[in-house]
Amino acid sequence: MNRTALIWRVASFAVAAGFIALWQLIANLKLVSPVFLPGPDRAWAALMRGFSSGDLWSKLAGTLEHMAYGWLAASIAGIAIGAIIGSSRTMRTYVAPSLEFLRPLPVSAIIPVAIAMLGLTQAMALFVIAFGAIWPIMLATIHGFAAVEPRLYEVARSLQMSRLAVIFKIALPSASPDILAGMRLSLTVALILSVVCEILAGLDGLGHWVLLSARAFRSADLFAGVILLGVTGYVTSVAMSLAEHRLLAWQASQR
C-alpha cells in the first residue's frame, strides 16, 4: 500500500516536471514575449541570485514579519474577544448579529481608512493585517463557545467553577478545533494583506519586490518573487496543519 502511494507520488512529481519543461519550451520558442514570461531557468537563476546577494532574504523576512505580527495580534485579540462574546448569552444576542453583518465586508476596503489614520507606515500595515485576520478567528471562537456540549456547563455549575475557570478549563479546550481552523484561514488572509500593504505603502517585503520588478520589466525577478510567495503560503499552511495535528492529538481518541 505504502509503495503504491510512493509510486503515485513520483508519477505526480514527473507530471509537474513535465509542465515545467513545457514552460521552458514555450519560453525558449518565445511563444510568449520573454518580457512577460521568463523561462524557469531564468526564474531559478534570479531566485538564486537574489538569495546569494541577500536581497530576497531581507524581503522574505520583511513579509514574514508583517504576517507573523499581524496574525499573532489577531489571534490573541480574536480569541479573547471571541471568548468574551461567546461565553455570554446576552453578548451573543446583542453583538453577534453586528459581527455577522460586518463579516462579508471585503477587509481590504479598510486600507484607505487605515492610511488616512496612520499614514503609509508599518503601523498601518499591522493594523490592516490584524483587522483582516481577526474575523475568522473571532467568529470561529464564538461559534466554538456556543457549540460546547451543554452538559459540560452543567458539570461546571455543579462544581461551582468561576467564569474564568469555565472558559479556560471547559470552553477553550472544547472550542480549540474551531479556533485552530479559524487561525488557519487567517494565515492566508494575513499573507495576502501583507502583500497588498507592501505594494501600497512601499514597505520592505516581497510585495514591494514583485511590484518594483514589474515596473522595471525584470520578469525573472518578478517570477522569483511570486514563486517565493507561493512557497511561503505553502510552508505556513503545512506548518499550521502540523501544529493543529499536534495540538489536537488528545482529541483523536474521542472522535
Partner: peptide, 26 residues
C-alpha cells in the same frame, strides 16, 4: 487526480494578489 496532485498543490498556495504584477505587465 493523483497525477496532477503535485502540480495543483504547487500552484494553489500562490496568493492571488501576488499575480497582480504579472497581470499588470502582461
Amino acid at each position: 487526480n493523483r497525477l496532477m496532485e503535485v502540480t495543483v498543490e504547487a500552484i494553489r498556495p500562490i496568493p492571488s494578489i501576488a499575480l497582480l504584477p504579472i497581470a499588470l505587465i502582461a
